[in-house]
Structures are given as structure tokens and as C-alpha cells.
Amino acid sequence: MLLHNSVDTDPRNKDLKSIYIYEAPVRLWHWVMVIAVTVLIVTGLLISYPPPSVSGEASEHFLFGYIRFAHFASGYTLAVSWLLRIYWAFVGNDYARQLFLVPIFNKIWWQEFMYDVKSYAFMHVREIKYSGHNPMAQAAMAFMLVPVSFFMMITGFALYSEGAGKGTWSDMLFGWVIPLFGQSQNVHTWHHLGMWLMVTFFIVHLYMVLRQDVTTRESIVSTMVSGYRTFKD
């Protein structure tokens, strides 16, 4: 397990120019998720607030059906990509596990975490170089992105099971969620609220990666394309 990832503290990294961080399956998962979640948010909002009615006979149209199909298909895609991502956490490199294993019992990790907090509060000018996620980013991924994603997939498939019907795989695996929340309407409300958490995460994530790319001494955005973290000094 990767306990802490600052490159600065390890003297062997003195002349390091680049490290291979994100293996192909992780990058693929990332970009599949970007597309799937975007489609899910747009279609999800359309399901809550349907577009203006179409005119003519019902038999001539299937607009709302297609919107819902896009939502369900993206949901399935997201779930499959997460299954592959979890599998890769077992077989991939150390960085593939950062989303799931946070070294909260490691003193150095906490020191670096606090250093990060101060950096983001403009109390340090120089930021530590990291190979993988910095501790704050790692915490945001593990305690926000992962739980919210799974909350959305579990409540999503529970709602899907209502249409799919009793005895279907989604009903058998996730049907219990409906009574847990009291009734279906509550699950709809919480699923909707979870969407806004995803939007909030996306705003912060996009800002952070762009900011880090511009202000720090390592590559961020291009790393999720090429897999390599390159260092500018």
C-alpha cells in the first residue's frame, strides 16, 4: 500500500522526470465515467423536468422513452466501469488502490494532509510534489467520489428495479433499498440530491486539476491522458 506519495521526501527521486501513474484501465475508467456521468446528469434532470410535450399521436414518438433509455444505459455503463475499476484496484499498481485505501493511520500522510490544507489556504507558497493523488485529493476521492458514486448506483438500480419488475436481478440485489428509505418517492428525492453532490464534486475536481496543472511543478491534466506524471523541475 502506498502510504504517502510526496516525491520530495525520497532522495532517490532527485533527478526524477516522470513516473507512470495511471495505467490504461484506470484512464479508461476515468473517461468512461466522465461521459457516463455527464449523460446521467443531463438525462436525469430531463427525467425530473421533462421537455415540453411533443404534438401528434403517441405512437409517432418515443422521446421520453429514449431519454430514460440513455439514462439506464449510462447507468449500466457506469456500474460496469466501476466493477472493472475495483478489479484493477486488486491487480493494478499502487496508485490504483489510492481511491479505496487511505492511510489514515500514517503520521506522514496526516502531516502532508495538513500541509496541503495550509497550501490551499495560501499559507505556504511552495507545494509538495506528489506522484499520485495529494492527501487532500485522495481523501476527497475516497470519502466523496467513491461513496456518492456507489450511493447513486445503488439507489439508481433500486429505482430501475421498480420498472424491471419483481424477481429481476436488480430487484433481487437492490430492491431492499426502497423499504429502507420508506418508499419509492424518498429514494427518488435522495437520488436527485446525490446528483447535486456529483455536480459539486465535478466543480471542485475540475477547478483543482486545472489549478494544480497551472500552479504546481507536476503535470495533472495530461497525466490522465498519457498516464505519466511529469515534473517541471
Binding site: S48, W190, H192, L193, W196, T200, I203, V204, Y207
Partner: peptide, 16 residues
Amino acid sequence: ADKVGGTLAAVTAAGV
């Protein structure tokens, strides 16, 4: 859900 979530997203965006 929209008022709660939308406010959260808007506040976050303003903070960013």
C-alpha cells in the same frame, strides 16, 4: 432536492 443541491453547487462554485 433541487433547492438544497443547487444551493450547495452554487456555493461551491462561488467558493471555487
